[in-house]
Design a protein around this nucleic acid. Sequence first.
DNA 1: TCGCCTTCCCAAAGCGCTTTGGATGGTTAA
DNA 2: TTAACCATCCAAAGCGCTTTGGGAAGGCGA
Lengths: 343, 343
Amino acid sequence: MSVTLKQLAASLGLSPTTVSRALNGFPEVNAATRRRVEQAAAAANYHPNTRAKSLATGRAQAIGHVIPLSTSHEIVNPVFADFIAGAGEVYARNGYEMILRVVPDDDEASAYRDLMARGSVDGVILHGPRIEDARVGLLAELGLPFLVHGRTSGVNTPYSWLDINNQRSFHRATEFLCSFGHSRIALINGLEEMDFARRRRNGYLEALAKAGSEPDPMLMRQGEMTEPYGYRAAQEMIQLPEPPTAFLASSIIVAYGILRGLSDLGLKLGRDISLVTHDDELSYLPNDGDVPLFTATRSSVREAGRRAASMLLRLVAEPDSGPLTELMETSLVLGASTGPVRT
Amino acid sequence: MSVTLKQLAASLGLSPTTVSRALNGFPEVNAATRRRVEQAAAAANYHPNTRAKSLATGRAQAIGHVIPLSTSHEIVNPVFADFIAGAGEVYARNGYEMILRVVPDDDEASAYRDLMARGSVDGVILHGPRIEDARVGLLAELGLPFLVHGRTSGVNTPYSWLDINNQRSFHRATEFLCSFGHSRIALINGLEEMDFARRRRNGYLEALAKAGSEPDPMLMRQGEMTEPYGYRAAQEMIQLPEPPTAFLASSIIVAYGILRGLSDLGLKLGRDISLVTHDDELSYLPNDGDVPLFTATRSSVREAGRRAASMLLRLVAEPDSGPLTELMETSLVLGASTGPVRT
DNA sequence: TCGCCTTCCCAAAGCGCTTTGGATGGTTAA
DNA sequence: TTAACCATCCAAAGCGCTTTGGGAAGGCGA
């Protein structure tokens, strides 16, 4: 079907060895010969067979992403698409393939073992780390280079990760709301078995404590971050005897739900009620413009994908470059959804 | 690192040949031997090296998904994550790997060529087909098995596809609105270079014609399907001298935007204004419950992913199974966003 | 002239698997 | 008894590439 190295070599009257070296930039080949080879390769649309190449080199030239599909709720993380887009960019630029495995989340361990044993990938990115996530230990033990998108509290062995400063983000956001006089601030969080959610709650609690406000369990909720989840949370909380005057949401999708919930009750964001949300800059839910709809802690998950991919590739190339870590700060951008507490 | 066939064979005092045949279910191996081999393989956590295997067999055991990243708007299709989740399920079950390439959309052709020449995949799924999409011709020419998610009008060569009945969906939706007395129905569509968008518009126009309503260009809009797009469209249209009494949206994300746009103007869906949207059943934007928020033409894109993957695998296994096609009908589910025209 | 580098190229082995084409020994039919 | 036949196993080639370990030819200094 497609042309092979041997054929190309034969057509040039050269040995496969020389052609290989010419194309791979080895020094011991005449400049003129190299040019000739390169031209012929381009003309024949020659691309080395990936499988043969990686069998010979021992490198898979591929990075794996295992995306767990929660067996209970079956939710696909909406953030995933943009992260992948960012990472994919980097892989493509570096000649790496991206391979995806969608697995039930109780089957993830065997997915990693399998990937390792088959030698299908040179490294993996671990998504959606939970508190004390056992996958980190497993991967370390397998000896497969990996990078965590996020972190996992309670795991002591060092590992590489890229995370945003969730705690600081929500600390700042809470602080910001407090400075407007808010003291009853609701936290509509993701599932708190997820590490990011726990950290956000910590930041929130920390800021409340600093401001001298007592946290109220009635105002704290965790759940799968869908739009209706935000809607229900907002509606239910607003009917409490002592309703919140502000909301803090863990995802822009949830924020839209809150917005709708309040709007249905005739309440207007920024005037009657304040809202700060985390904003991953999902491409189909842009929160920009002169005055964004939502005041938000903003951080591009696509950029996170890019950086995570770069870090992992570095880790694959130089396994001794030790655990690599990066903490991205978010920016707190002022939108139309916040204002002083209404008295 | 991981155990090889040769090692396993040596440890069993057998030849690699026999071990290979035992594990691959060939008949010419003693039942007892086979059992012994299987147990040893399991104990050693033996998994055949993918690259070696596929080099030997000539099959990549992988399916490629090329996802074009629009160079101009940089939007990642939100529908993509759920489609992938569905397809991934099927690949995993059949021992196929899923490989993803994120490429700028002006570079897609070379991505396919490359995938083909390197032999990295046994087939590909083509996403986001446009009108008269040239990729179909390219893939046919390359001889790479492929399946289109959607269709492409104006391409005459036969090809395999899985699509939903966009035209009929929007025909029915429009008809339904007409039956409520609506005649000024706005269409907030996706980019009409996309095949699905064109079909939806056709269905819409067809139904309008049948109902004797004149289509109004002021009420038809196309664009990238984001939330703000829906918001702006709704707000602008509602201020027209002759505003629409109903909206037809191509995506639930757009529908949320419309909802917010109307809501900001004090208009309530289902009472003041009607809205029907297409609903792909995105997992994080569920439109369900006793009475769904939106009346919708509903079709699970995750299920589409599953079916598309199955069809493609079939195509790969039996290339002569000819062009496979499937047209999924959508269901029109009644939600809270529609009602008789307000007089 | 010889010896010694360079420069440029090649033969062959090997990556881990599958598969072709036997080989071996025991059974069965004639 | 012999030939034909299974049932069961194996040696070796080959998939398309990289890489090791030369080797031939030419240039240079002594």
